[in-house]
């Protein structure tokens, strides 16, 4: 049982949520009182809020909007800023957070992505980055061609952790070099036009640690490496690896403990060699 500051058993605690009704409205804080139970996580707190639909003042309010999926920390959906630090809300245990922070729970949306509503943000840029760096193995097709090339156990052991990236966006939220990109829709635009403009805007800005890591993952795959040059071109394009400032927050906040900074440094090395080779060997202008 958790005790409050007066040493009494905690019967309830306060949750403050930074809410925002829509992308272009102002954000505000709303407080909720949640009865304390052991073994709560932030998701169950949000579920409770939805069920109560009353804030701390007793006024009725709308349920908080938030994203979640597997609740086991493998899908990457429920990322948010909890007491100032980005993390998955499913694995954020209320007991631990209350221990750290004087009995208050503060929930905020990620700040590097446009807010859609409350704690829901638009992370399409994360997936766009994967397109940009061609995070796939360029197989010929899906007919049966027998097994893939034999692979070193060591290579698998290095690749597996990189492959655990669930595109949750923690590394991007904590990165001081990764800034929010918000594209406003223009009234005369079609869906496709807006999408294209948004993607073009994303492509100009930093791809982020997760994408660099994926590029290194596929560049180490026996078939994937056949287009490693294309990936390095993408990584050294505008918004590429050069934006990294080596603050190394990415690796510190990664919920999957992926060696992101190692991938970044390896990408840096590959980019150096790639560019020098290209300068001296290539016929391109």
């Amino acid at each position: 049982m958790i005790k409050n500051v007066y040493g009494e058993n905690l019967t309830s605690f306060t949750v403050k949520v930074r809410r925002q009704a829509s992308p272009d409205s102002q954000s505000y804080w709303e407080a909720f009182n949640i009865p304390y139970q052991a073994d709560l996580n932030v998701i169950s707190v949000l579920q409770q809020i939805a069920k109560m639909s009353k804030n701390a003042k007793g006024e009725s309010t709308t349920p908080v909007a938030w994203d979640c999926g597997c609740l086991e920390e493998v899908c990457g959906a429920c990322t948010m800023v909890i007491n100032g630090r980005v993390r998955q809300s499913c694995s954020a245990l209320v007991d631990n957070i209350l221990d750290e922070n004087n009995d208050v729970l503060r929930l905020e949306p990620m700040s590097k992505f446009p807010v859609i509503r409350d704690l829901v943000v638009d992370r399409s840029r994360v997936f766009r980055a994967l397109q940009k760096i061609k995070a796939w193995v360029p197989v010929d097709g899906y007919y049966d061609m027998g097994a893939g090339p034999k692979q070193d156990r060591k290579r698998q052991e290095q690749a597996y952790p990189l492959s655990e990236c669930m595109s949750c966006g923690c590394c991007l939220e904590a990165c001081p070099q990764y800034l929010k990109v918000e594209t406003q829709r223009e009234s005369d635009e079609t869906d496709e036009q807006f999408e294209d403009r948004k993607n073009a805007e994303y492509d100009k800005n930093f791809v982020g640690a997760h994408a660099i890591n994926q590029a290194m993952l596929f560049n180490s795959n026996p078939t994937g490496k056949m287009i490693s040059g294309e990936r390095l071109d993408a990584l050294t394009d505008e918004g590429g690896i050069q934006i990294c400032g080596n603050a190394q927050n990415c690796v510190a906040v990664c919920p999957k403990e992926i060696p992101l900074t190692t991938s970044i440094a390896k990408a840096g090395r590959a980019a150096t060699i790639h560019k020098i080779k290209k300068f001296f060997d290539s016929n391109e202008k």
Partner: peptide, 22 residues
């Protein structure tokens, strides 16, 4: 068996034996 071969080709990091088989 074909499904696993295909997934292997797609880059799924299956655990490997010493010799490099799945």
């Amino acid at each position: 068996p074909k499904v696993i071969d295909l997934m292997d080709r797609l880059g799924v990091p299956f655990n490997r034996t010493q010799e490099g088989f799945i």
